[in-house]
Design a protein around this nucleic acid. Structure first.
Length: 110
DNA sequence: CTCTTGACTGAGG
DNA sequence: GCCTCAGCCAAGA
């Protein structure tokens, strides 16, 4: 049995918790930090189970800065509202100045 | 076991 | 910069 697979979900949660206030990152960045740059979809899949945990899933978006996971939140604009509350400018599910608020764990956290 | 789906990404036109 | 195609891994039916 490969414990790494089981840790994968937990690792995703840990990294998500490490995201600084007012910053966002991409699924691929987290996956890359975990050593699985090709498992970006799995990161999103893992986030699917982040409900009920202290994981700021609203800070995790795709590489385009698009809030693709907003449909998984209760409200229709909850995810966007949370980000804007942290100082992140979001328009129509699209993060503005992405490179400014972008946070790469492999560069910033390393 | 096989097929489908998904909170993705990179490459090509 | 935008659109489309293919690759990727895991879970559910």
């Amino acid at each position: 049995m490969k414990p790494e697979t089981l840790n994968f979900f937990e690792k995703v949660y840990e990294v998500a918790k490490l995201i600084p206030y007012g910053r966002v990152t991409s699924y691929g960045a987290i996956g890359n930090y975990l050593g699985a740059p090709r498992s970006a979809r799995m990161v999103g899949y893992a986030m699917n189970g982040s409900h009920g945990k202290d994981v700021p899933a609203h800070r995790v978006v795709n590489r385009k800065g698009l809030l693709t996971g907003k449909h998984h939140f209760d409200g229709t604009n909850l995810m966007q509202q949370l980000l804007e509350s942290e100082g992140v400018v979001v328009i129509e599910n699209q993060i503005q100045d992405l490179k400014t608020v972008y946070w790469d764990p492999t560069k910033e956290l390393l």
